[in-house]
């Protein structure tokens, strides 16, 4: 604990406090958690870059069906490897204090598998398949039907994909999203 404190200067902590939805203490706590993933490496360099496999050992991420996407979205080098700052960003977005708009923004990127700035049919399929897990498979026609229903509900301009505006619209109306899109530190 004491060591964790000494790894940051007051100035850095102030920066982190200003730039995330955390207080200084929470930043330190987050660092503890980060350190627990790879004590050796982080002990040497507080902002060490951990490979994605290591980050995914974080309990909530380990079982999350979108784990690799989350890492990729928050990784500053875009390959899924995360430094502490990336990890802090991640936790900040998933924290209770982050507003809905910020959460929606990142959720959109997580669900946008092919990175074309639209959640298209293939993205939706991927999301649904991941939601149901590796063991249970919905039949192709069922997925087709579900994708169709989602698009019918949300795709206002009928272009066969959800743009960010449309996605945000859904999120605005879903009170459960904020409850579920959350990882407690």
């Amino acid at each position: 604990m004491g060591q964790g404190k000494s790894q940051f200067t007051e100035e850095e902590l102030q920066d982190y406090e200003d730039l995330t939805y955390f207080t200084k203490k929470e930043v330190l706590y987050a660092h503890q958690k980060f350190k627990a993933l790879a004590p050796e490496k982080v002990g040497h360099n507080k902002n060490a870059k951990l490979p994605m496999a290591k980050i995914l050992q974080y309990p909530e991420l380990r079982v999350n069906p979108f784990r690799d996407r989350i890492c990729k979205v928050f990784s500053s080098s875009n390959d899924g490897d995360c430094t502490f700052e990336d990890f802090l960003d991640m936790m900040s977005v998933f924290s209770d204090n982050a507003p809905k708009a910020v959460k929606a923004e990142h959720a959109f990127r997580i669900f946008d598998f092919d990175g074309d700035d639209m959640i298209g049919v293939s993205d939706l399929r991927e999301v649904i398949e991941r939601l149901c897990g590796p063991e249970l498979k919905l039949s192709d026609s069922e997925i087709q039907q579900l994708v169709q229903n989602v698009l019918e509900e949300a795709d206002l301009d009928d272009d066969g994909a959800l743009s960010f505006a449309e996605f945000e619209h859904i999120i605005d109306k879903s009170s459960d999203f904020c409850h579920s899109f959350r990882i407690r530190l």
Partner: peptide, 22 residues
């Protein structure tokens, strides 16, 4: 109105952290 969207996008509880419950 947004039953399916809620199901797909808000379905997973990101706070779940153990294998069995996942």
């Amino acid at each position: 109105f947004y039953m399916y969207c809620n199901l797909v996008f808000g379905g997973w509880d990101f706070c779940i952290h153990n294998d069995k419950s996942a």
